[in-house]
Design a protein around this nucleic acid. Structure first.
Length: 263
DNA sequence: ATGGCGTACACCGTACGA
């Protein structure tokens, strides 16, 4: 079973990339961020025509998340959760559902778009930290149940200096500041494994590159998109990769998808 | 030091992202 997370930076603009990539990479289920589309305009019919299903939670212009599943291989999508339960939020940043693969694997798959934070110390920065704390509380609750959990998405945190192309230049910056890294660490400590740590990866492997100044061509990137898994799933993970192929396509998202294979 | 690019909304510029 192959699952993934991808910040598509507009589902409308990236629809063709998404379908092409899911077929190329043989993805069974992917959580998407920054769909930037109200639910009435989400391209569900197009995805269904291409062999997929989707549940989604969107808003105009900003944010928006979705879970897209392959009809052939994902038997069911149920118990959908929209936004973090018990955490009232105007912004649409989280979606979760139970999915069942033809192999028999069943798991809870949650996708998140953690707030960017905008500027250290700003109200949006405090909202980011608060949001991550609410997510951590929800994860603790989820881990009480026996259903394995995969929590994936754009966390807007580069956990270590190895995840930053120029740590000196970024030192103390948004996305790498100690409070953000500590919040990410607390989330892991709730009972998850950062699947990235299970693999051997080339250094300087990132998931986001600035559109400006040829960021991708120079590999001036950050690794801010992550796949976290409960222990029962983590021990079944065969492969964790960041697929840079669609980042090199015409009019790409600024993020690359992160892919995890569960044996 | 600034802005550089891309998307959305709807202005022909502003907000936001990372």
């Amino acid at each position: 079973m192959k699952i993934a997370t991808w910040n598509v930076n507009s589902i409308k603009v990236r629809l063709e990339h998404l379908i092409k990539w899911m077929d190329l990479a043989r993805i069974d289920a992917v959580v998407l961020q920054e769909t930037k589309t109200v639910d009435e305009l989400f391209p569900l019919a197009e995805l269904q025509a291409a062999g997929f299903d989707a549940v989604f939670l969107g808003q105009k212009t900003y944010n928006g998340v979705a879970l897209v599943t392959r009809k052939n291989t994902i038997r069911s999508v149920s118990d959908v959760v929209y936004n973090i339960p018990g955490y009232p939020d105007e912004q649409k940043r989280m979606i979760a559902a139970d999915i069942k693969h033809v192999s028999g694997t069943k798991l809870r798959f949650a996708g998140v778009y953690v707030p960017n934070g905008t500027e250290l110390g700003s109200n949006r920065y405090l909202y980011k930290l608060d949001w991550m704390s609410a997510l951590t509380t929800w994860v603790r609750e989820q881990l009480q149940s026996k259903t394995p959990l995969v929590l994936a998405g754009d966390f807007n945190v580069a956990p270590t200096d190895a995840d930053v192309w120029d740590p000196e230049a970024w030192k103390g910056n948004l996305l790498v500041s100690p409070p953000e890294r500590e919040a990410f660490e607390r989330l892991i400590k709730a009972g998850l494994v950062d699947t990235w740590s299970l693999g051997l990866h080339a250094p300087e492997t990132y998931s986001w590159w600035d559109y400006r100044q040829a960021g991708f061509e120079k590999n001036h990137g950050l690794r801010i998109d992550h796949v976290l898994a409960s222990f029962d799933i983590a021990e079944r993970i065969g492969e964790v990769t960041i697929d840079t192929v669609p980042r090199a396509w015409e009019k790409p998202s600024d993020h690359a998808p992160v892919v995890v294979v569960i044996d």
